[in-house]
């Protein structure tokens, strides 16, 4: 869902930019005195600039409300299942691999050697959450499983020649 929104928003903005560039290119054959153009379009720029700043402020406030670094269930008095993950070249040690639908899980992720990624993919191979596995540090990623199925864990940070086959699985039951 988020990927779809990101794609649509990006495509819309890029097409809008393309439209403006094509429009200006088409108008470039005409010749007019530059001074009036500067005067007029500096005024427009002021409005355009302020609009962009306001847009950034609104989008920032909206998207920063719920950060993935915060576990929402703690606020509701529910304790998540805490799962320890240690990545290594080229696999994962995961303290628990089976869950039930509705389980809120906190994955505490670290690594025994180099930096790895810990990406959780749903059954349709959509990436639904991730964090980095870093030596000497423990990063945390939270997820509440809403659908049963077999979830894939992929390493999402290049870690050596077998990086692409560093895969594991989680099972979520009804």
């Amino acid at each position: 869902m988020i990927q779809f929104i990101a794609w649509v928003v990006s495509l819309f903005c890029m097409l809008a930019i393309a439209f403006v560039f094509v429009f200006v290119a088409l108008k470039s054959g005409q010749r007019e005195n530059y001074e009036p153009i500067v005067k007029k379009w500096y005024k427009v720029r002021k409005v355009y600039g302020i609009s962009l700043v306001v847009l950034i402020a609104i989008v920032s406030v909206y998207t920063l409300r719920n950060l993935p670094y915060n576990q929402p269930v703690y606020g509701k008095g529910i304790e998540p299942i805490v799962v320890g993950v240690e990545a290594f070249q080229f696999g994962f040690d995961i303290s628990q691999r089976e869950f039930n639908v509705g389980d809120s899980v906190e994955f505490d992720v670290t690594t025994a050697d180099v930096t790895h990624g810990f990406g959780i993919y749903d059954e349709d191979m959509n990436l639904i959450a991730q964090t980095q596995a870093m030596p000497e540090y423990t990063n945390t990623v939270y997820i509440t499983f809403t659908k049963p199925g077999t979830y894939q864990i992929l390493c999402l940070e290049y870690c050596g020649l077998a990086h692409h086959i560093m895969v594991d699985q989680l099972v979520v039951k009804e």
Binding site: A6, T63, I128, A129, Q130, L156
Partner: peptide, 11 residues
């Protein structure tokens, strides 16, 4: 955007 990066980082 952090919430986007959560599902698109390193893709």
């Amino acid at each position: 955007t952090i919430v986007v990066n959560h599902v698109m980082h390193n893709t």
